[in-house]
């Protein structure tokens, strides 16, 4: 809650790598046209591993 956004090194690294790639039209098109799937794919492992409580 009190973290400065700069403290999230993983996100900064991902942004530093991926955002320049979106300058490539092909990559950008693929990335943004599937954005809604990209938004949920990170939850896959959590849902896969969830067990009945």
């Amino acid at each position: 809650m009190f973290d400065f956004p700069q403290a999230d090194v993983k996100t900064r690294l991902l942004n530093a790598i991926l955002i320049p790639l979106t300058r490539l039209p092909g990559f950008r098109k693929k990335m943004f046209s599937n954005m809604k799937y990209h938004m949920i794919e990170r939850f896959g492992p959590v849902l896969r591993d969830a067990k009945s409580s």
Partner: peptide, 10 residues
Amino acid sequence: DSIYGGMRMA
């Protein structure tokens, strides 16, 4: 904060 971090890509 959100645009600086996790939402910047989108």
